[in-house]
Design a protein around this nucleic acid. Structure first.
Lengths: 141, 141
DNA sequence: TCATCTGTAATTATATGCATAACAGTTTTT
DNA sequence: AAAAACTGTTATGCATATAATTACAGATGA
């Protein structure tokens, strides 16, 4: 599991809470605590989906382009983390002629994708707005 | 995400389908398509939870010690994969004094553990017996 | 007592994830 | 027109995580 989903949630939350809804990759990277190039990579994907727009050149950066009550964690999971439940190595698929060995891969694939569906359904009920509220309420305990 | 959960499902399914419900780590490893030592490691954990018993010495091996309609994938997930939804690297936690950076980790931890709970609930509804049936029906299409 | 099997730790190899550097392309400012 | 400040993207190195492999002590049955 890589953390691009996490980074996407972080970036969008940050943009959502900024007064003008804008920041550049350097500023965002400091908050995320990673390298600006990594932020640009993730935000590039979010741009292609229309969640942010970018302004190049001097004074440029990323601008939130979505209603935070409409964007769900499910959307972001599907975009950035889908498929990560299934490990790269899976059992079976060798020379063995045992029934389990011959069919476990199809069965496990269904198990993983079913699990992922349950996960996505759960995340579909959490919006970016919910996250921003959580951040703010953490700030005033 | 490592694949011990997958290996556990595979091993228990195999034992469940064997006539005498018994096999040694060499035989199981061939079906799983991995090294016997890895099988022993996973089955050692399952033994501690009582899902299998082991017989050492000549003619020994692992013996299924559970009702396959009672063991769920949720049980196995909790035992072998819990926590794997949250990546080892997470955003925030650096020097930045930005509100998001300061609180994102607690918020993301809740998001990941909530997601995992949804996943576990889903897996709680799938029993080992269901998996063995899936394997068998894959075998007779 | 010997052969066989588990339990477990240590080591090596490989894959993945992250950091970093570099640079082309775009836009604004001067 | 030129310089500066950005994004977009690729390539490379390094750290960590995962799996394979080896090794051996301990237990058991023949």
């Amino acid at each position: 599991m890589n953390s691009e989903f996490n980074i996407a949630v972080h970036c969008l939350t940050l943009l959502s809470l900024k007064k003008d809804h804008m920041a550049n990759s350097d500023e965002i990277a400091k908050s995320v605590c990673t390298h600006p190039a990594r932020v640009r990579k993730v935000l590039g994907l979010l741009r292609k989906q229309g969640y942010v727009t970018t302004k190049e050149g001097v004074g440029g950066g990323y601008l939130l382009n979505a209603d935070s009550s409409k964007v769900t964690l499910g959307d972001l999971y599907r975009l950035l983390a889908r498929g990560s439940l299934q490990p790269s190595w899976c059992s079976g698929g060798g020379e063995s002629t045992c029934v389990v060995s011959e069919h476990i891969q199809e069965v496990m694939e269904r198990i993983y994708s079913g699990g992922e569906l349950a996960l996505e359904r759960h995340y579909d009920n959490i919006t970016l707005l919910d996250v921003t509220r959580d951040i703010q309420s953490e700030n005033q305990p």
